[in-house]
Write a protein that binds this DNA or RNA. Structure first.
Lengths: 227, 227
DNA sequence: TTGACTCTGCTTACACCGTAAGCCTACGGT
DNA sequence: ACCGTAGGCTTACGGTGTAAGCAGAGTCAA
């Protein structure tokens, strides 16, 4: 059969396997099992392949993790200058938070990763571009970028590491921690828990917008008169 | 010899080994080798003991990591109400940052840790106490706490994961990343790097105080009129 | 004094990890 | 038809967390 000359038909024999397929499989696995579940053997198994085959496309496990982080960054919406820097930063931050919640392991990977990938660089460049275009000085853009991203990563880091996902779970956990202790040892934690966090309708996630608005409201372009 | 009745003299025979000695040894090891170097065998070796002996005092490796994080929190200065909430929050944040820089592995451990230890709880309680004492409402204190800590953790997370420690290293790294690419692919990153970050005297660490001041300045007690 | 119980450290063993080294086979260029 | 090479596979090694069981010392009852 002449058609067999090329394998592009996808002869079931062997699929091509390249870096991006490996990284994507690793991300899927991490979403399901956590980053600890991302072993070379497990990733390979997910692709119907042996562990050592991955090393033809990936330098080592660390390189794979770098790729995963970059793939996550690629999911974040790039900001656009159209609607003004405030809205652009706001939308970008919310998109980033949504993405990082979808891949909770990614934040914990941010430290220990040293080589930013192309998507990461493109993302940072776009953010700086919006700020500069809106009149922020170089130093001002750097500062705004630093503050916003610190808040963003820090919030998600805390959010993701909370040992509960819903309000009911919160109740159980808080009860477990505070209940087992000397009553009155942590009066303010008790207060904030019972009078605030356990109130129906409370959702810690809502704090994100509030904090973000507070920070964005304190920023402004072209800080000529400022120290 | 009657004195031998009690081993309290410290017969060189065997040292007692308890949880706190184990956790302290693990922290020392992590400071020196990074968190990946904290293996049960290595921690035990540092104490002149075999790996399995640790399990008499520590549930498992995860429990050990929990203990390490709590020990780090214990190093952070508790805020005191004396000089006003602004200065208290400022000093607390700077102390926390100094501690987390001393133990760079700790931030990365914050996620994946689910059981806060006593030092952690005491710390959070003290922060809330200062804010409440200064007139913040329960909701306001919760919000302030969330914003400040998010910024703090996020900043340190980024700071710690930077692949350099000094300005010269920054130059090399930046050159390596940006140099290997299409010139002009990331114009704003190039701009900020060459015109700002590589300027003599620039230190990213200084951004911390600026961002913190910006956030603290936007907070205020008793947000009656606010949404 | 003696014996039993408990506490704590040690030894051994297992499954799983990342990955170095080398083999085998199918494909593409000649 | 051949052969180099790329990209899979197999095997193997040292290191990991930790389950299971052993050994010696401290404490207490009889």
């Amino acid at each position: 059969m002449a058609a067999r000359r090329r394998a592009e038909v996808g002869s079931s024999r062997r699929s091509p396997l390249d870096r991006s397929r490996i990284v994507a499989a690793a991300v899927t696995l991490a979403d399901a099992e956590g980053v600890a579940g991302v072993t070379m053997r497990a990733v390979a198994a997910g692709l119907g392949v042996e562990a050592m085959s991955l090393y033809n496309h990936v330098r080592n496990r660390d390189d794979l993790l770098d790729g995963m982080v970059d793939l996550v960054f690629a999911e974040i919406e790039l900001p656009t200058a159209g609607a003004g820097w405030y809205q652009a930063m706001r939308k970008r931050a919310e998109s980033a938070r949504a993405v990082l919640r979808r891949h909770p392991w990614a934040v914990g990977l941010l430290d220990s990763r040293s080589a930013p990938g192309p998507a990461t660089l493109r993302h940072h460049d776009a953010v700086l571009g919006v700020l500069r275009g809106a009149g922020f000085s170089v130093a001002g853009a750097a500062r705004a970028f630093s503050v916003i991203d610190s808040y963003l990563y820090g919030f998600v880091l805390q959010e993701v590491s909370l040992p509960f996902r819903s309000s009911e779970e919160l109740g159980e956990v808080a009860g477990g921690i505070l209940g087992g202790l000397d009553a009155g040892a942590y009066p303010h934690l008790v207060e904030i828990t019972t009078e605030h966090a356990l109130r129906p309708g409370y959702d810690y996630a809502d704090e994100f917008d509030a904090g973000l608005a507070l920070i964005l409201g304190a920023l402004e372009p072209d800080e000529r008169g400022e120290g």
